[in-house]
Design a protein around this nucleic acid. Sequence first.
RNA 1: GCUUGGGUGGUGGAAUUGGUAGACACGCAGGACUUAAAAUCCUGUGACCUUAACAGUCGUACGGGUUCAAGUCCCGUCCCGAGUACCA
Length: 1127
Amino acid sequence: MEYNFKDIEKKWQQRWAKEKTFATKNDSTKPKYYVLDMFPYPSGAGLHVGHPLGYIASDIIARYKRHKGFNVLHPMGYDSFGLPAEQYAIQTGQHPKITTEQNIARYREQFDKIGFSFDWDREIRTSDPEYYKWTQWIFIQIFNSWYNRKTDKAEKIETLIAEFEKSGNSPVNAVCEETKTFSAADWKAFSEKEKSDLLMNYRIAYLGEAYVNWCPAMGTVLANDEVKDGVSERGGYPVERKLMKQWSMRITAYAQRLLDGLDKIDWTDSLKDSQRYWIGRSEGTSVRFSLIPNPSPKEKGAKQHWQTADPKFYEELKRFVRENKQPQTEAEDKLWQLVRNNQLGVKFRRQHPIGTYIADFICLEKNLIIEVDGEIHNRTNEYDENRTAVLNKYGFKVIRFTNKQITNNIEEVVTTIKTECAASPSPKERGLGGEAKHTIEVFTTRPDTIFGVSFVTLAPEHELVDKITKPEFKAKVDAYVVASKSRSERERQADVKKVSGEFTGAYVIHPFSGKQIPIYVGDYVLAGYGTGAVMAVPGHDERDHRFAKHFGLPILQVVEGKDVQEESYDAKEGKMMNSDFLNGLEVKAAIKKTIEEIEKKNLGKGKINFRLRDAVFGRQRYWGEPIPIYYKDGIPHAMPENELPLVLPEVDKYLPTEDGEPPLARAKDWKYKDKYEYEQTTMPGWAGSSWYFLRYMDMHNNKVFADKKQIDYWQNIDLYLGGSEHATGHLLYVRFWTMFLKDMGYVNFDEPAKKLINQGMIQGVSEKIYLTKSKTNTAWVKQANGDLQRDSFTDDVATVFVSGSTGNLIQKLKNDNDLTEINVPIHIVKNNKLDIKSFLEYFPSYKDAAFVSEGGIFYKGEQIKNRFFENGDTTFYTKSEVEKMSKSKLNVITPDGYYDEKIKAFVPGIIDDFGADTLRLYEMFLGPLELSKPWNTNGITGVHGFLKKLWRLFSPSPAGEGRGEVAIVDAEPAKAELKTLHKTIKKITEDIERFSFNTSVSNFMICVNELTDLKCNKRAILEPLLVTLSPYAPHITEELWEKLGHKESIAFAPFPTFNEAYLVEDNFSYPISFNGKMRFNIELPLTLTVPEIENIVMKDVQTHKYLEGKTPKKVIIVPKKIVNIVV
RNA sequence: GCUUGGGUGGUGGAAUUGGUAGACACGCAGGACUUAAAAUCCUGUGACCUUAACAGUCGUACGGGUUCAAGUCCCGUCCCGAGUACCA
């Protein structure tokens, strides 16, 4: 009987599929275990040998837990949107020839061939309308929610509307800071559009303006985690920044919870760290700096100085004024007659818009507003306070009179106005131009260094840049702003260290020292973080230091430590100096003190900033879940839930329209109720994967996304396996959605996965040759004596390849910039030797190329320069390099073989040569799961040999024959055999529990080696061994299990129990060491006490030999461990 | 730069709480079986020195330290991989 892995594996794979052996039962009497792999995006190349690493590990765990009596959920699905070959469609607009079904079928075929125990009754595809119906449903829930800061959780939007109706908007409700304050009455008076716009500031899924990563080549926006090195992760196209109206997810509302939750879950530290960094919480304070020179409106050019209205609302306000001009109160008219036409020496305006308000009377010069409260306005006191606060923010002082005051005592009113006018010097009187007073708010984590501020820098996008820039600097600043906006992300990242900026000509006043401080624009300040402005402390911040050096600005030292003129001193320790009231304090104390002072002077307040940005959710792509929103009168509405799914419509082309609209704009007659436009962007790839783990629990439910009972039973994932590259993308989003669903009461846990393991990456080994760029007929060739010489071809050669082994030659050509790296398919390379014939079959366009190697020149299948080919050696060597496995690098190794159309040959994989069990064991044997390593097959024979050896235990025929039927005896096992077995059970259990799969494979080898030495063929030993091995090598163990007479699958056989009794030793071989150096062993009974051991050891002949007559200073005896004698 | 993981034979890697460094496997060398090959089995295999044998010295990137005892703990240095990048 031979170990025929091919037939065995096929037989069991078919039987498992037919009998649905691994379908999860809804058995809530058993303890549950949920083990999940991140599902793949089945792109064209199929699984490569790196993929199964994590799947095999999780399959081992799943199978192990089944043996342990758990009800195991172990499903698999596909991130199937945008398949197949999205890139192809983006470029051509055509649907690619390989279908999604074909792609997925190939994956499924490979999964089956490796013998995974997935429950295929629960296969998810994110692109299936039955699935994305629920993705859309969750989107609607998110859209209809807001984040309540008070209860610190998401709530239905209705509760916010109720709040608004009851008491208007107060900062308590604010999720984003720049929202309007308004009264309940205002709310009721708002139009539907206004209400909708306001609510958008609170919805967790919202439509808002934001700078996004725009990828022109793909015609879509990308999330931060979809951009790598300034180019798109999928496709590698350049990305630029663009201000766009976009659907976004308010993940920032969850920033603190996402951070705190990390402490509760068992994920790797590196992964938690990258999430912490990405969330980027930093504590600091805001500080407002007042601006000194406001350029006058005329200096600024475009605008009239009296135009103080918010431009967005200007038209509306104007109309309002026009409509309300007539019904003025008597009192207002009376007062107007006395202040108009510069009667008080200053110009007053009537019914003048400020921001979004309309002031009754206003004097722009004096920043003074006079409000008349009366019957017409009939406002509440509370509302007046709000209004005053807002107007104050615009820099105006507000004085109020009632109608009665004016009617009864107008003289007194006018006197008050005059006094107020005199008391508020106009900017001109203060020697300055301009109108409304501006402040620049900055965020800093080092308020202690405030006396070290020598300039303030604004981001180019900062709203004040335009307003404050002095005319003589305007041209340069404008040019700078435009230039930095048009720079691509890649360019921006490329010269991070390059300083650039412009002086605006304006200054602020230092709030403590009163010094004038210049304002600059610089793109090292990011618009999206903090306030988009920084107080620059070049002495103690590296970036500010660079900027100061470049522009020759003063560098002040305010923390003792080291000289700051040449290099900044960024450390957060030391004593303060040159800092007025902070002098002598330690940095920490100084920070505290400064915040106190800032808050006391009302210049700002302590604040926490997060680096995390809201997640852009809309994609201008075809493939993705349609966003279930339609627009009615410009107002977005969620579709009714019972009308879901909103199915992706047919389009003629998968490209944006000529006007740059997303592809969905091409869909004909695609309208809600035939009337209303649908949202045309689609959801990003991460939408479907943010909740899929819940759908697996209740795959086929068509009433809810998953039944509450099922969710309560399965809870969150016990073990989640996936790559660490998802740290700042998927793994953040899935936590966010889970927290949201918890807030809504759909699940009762915050975190999607209790434990998470990152499997390492298996890298590929690429084989490279080099293509010279120039199409000349010459090439550098190594001469027999080793020199390089330019050698002419006599033939007409279009392309010249250079071998990877010709190191000098390559260096020379590289220096000449005359070299392109070409990856060649690895299966046409053996031991770095390129098979040129196959290469030409693979790339027929190169059929006229010449191949220059150290040995000579190879051309048109013939060697043409024989003087270089010594000994007739025509080898053309490649250069190997370890790289990520990818289709484009032609270095993909698939676990199973495939037919290569180009060279018309079958390329075998590991499974074809050694079988799936060997593949599984070998991938585990390679090393620790988390480690990345290049794929090599060096050790595979060892693992395969182990399986053959195992097989032979069951058919103990004379060595060398390997034939005979299963021959197992029922005899009582010997002590040594039981010891081997139980030692193995113990080790394997420990190894699995700590995910140390490589060592368990070793332990199996040791076990089989020992049993072979013992010539053990006893059922009582071999049966339990099979069960412990079956998670790793399911096929061979099933087959042997069956041959032993079992009818049931081994998959559910109970895991053997470990019995300590078999391992109890009578003796222990003590290592005897002298001064820590091991010299010899003494076998001693374990029953001995420490003094008895010492007694025996000291009497030993060998001990005397090493003591050389000296008396030991000390004897250390650790029972069952070691004896150390100190001489 | 920052964060993080790591550095052990010719190779992949073991050594779980400080207690015999190099498990297990590959490779290599020698041998058995064979007409031969494959397969299988046996022996050896960190380096150095030495031998008939025993024994000895040095060894976990480098330099220090703690300890009876350090691959493991502490301090400093160097190198490699991964992530991230002007986050004030």
